[in-house]
Simulated scan of single mutants.
Amino acid sequence: MSDHEGHAGGIPGSDEDLSLPKATVAKMITELLPNDVTCSKETRDLVIECCVEFIHLISSEANEICEKESKKTIAPEHIISALKHLGFESFTSEVEDVLKDHKQQQKDREKKVSKFEQSGLTEEELLKQQEELFAASRAKFQSAQQ
């Protein structure tokens, strides 16, 4: 059940439970608006509802595309196709840019893991080195305080 404003009323797992972090959305709205313009709580809540509905629309279309291809996992390409099918072609280049950045971040993370492996040290040895660095830093800080 939900009240007239669409707030979840206690049905776990229902679509009404879907939302976005209010503080994050409020911050984004504040950053996008001119300094002399404010946004009411009701407007913020409406923006959240619109965003959730948009995400639901895109994911439903992407799911249909995925099923037509006999796939079990929605891939980024399905999202891009869904955007195009629903008339949001203007969004696709930015989505593709974000996807490209995400893939690069994943590669960078993998490189960091391999650096750990290449170090030839065990986790215990690395923790010992870290503790030694912390101790040296604390000693340096304490001597600077005196």
Rank of each mutant, 00 (worst) to 15 (best):
F91C: 14
K111A: 15
I58S: 00
T122C: 00
D97W: 09
C51T: 01
S14D: 06
A75M: 06
E69S: 14
E49T: 02
Q106V: 12
L99G: 10
E67G: 13
K41W: 02
E31C: 09
I58R: 00
C66Q: 01
S14H: 04
E49W: 00
K103L: 08
L32K: 01
Q129S: 13
Q145R: 13
S119R: 11
T92D: 09
E77M: 09
A23N: 08
L33G: 04
S143G: 04
L127K: 14
E96V: 09
E123V: 06
F116S: 01
K27R: 05
Q129L: 12
I65K: 05
S143Q: 08
C51N: 08
I79D: 04
A144H: 03
E117C: 04
Q146E: 04
E31Q: 10
G120A: 00
L121T: 06
L18F: 06
L33E: 01
K128D: 15
P34I: 00
L33K: 02
I80T: 08
F54H: 13
V113D: 15
Q142C: 07
S70F: 15
V95M: 11
A144L: 03
G13T: 00
E31T: 06
E123Q: 09
E132R: 08
C50D: 09
L86R: 13
I55R: 00
H7L: 06
L83T: 09
E61N: 10
V98L: 13
L133Y: 06
A136Q: 05
N63M: 12
S59V: 08
C50I: 07
D17I: 05
K41I: 06
S137V: 03
N35P: 11
L18N: 01
A26G: 02
L20T: 02
E16G: 15
L86K: 13
Q142D: 10
K100V: 05
K115H: 14
K84V: 13
R44W: 05
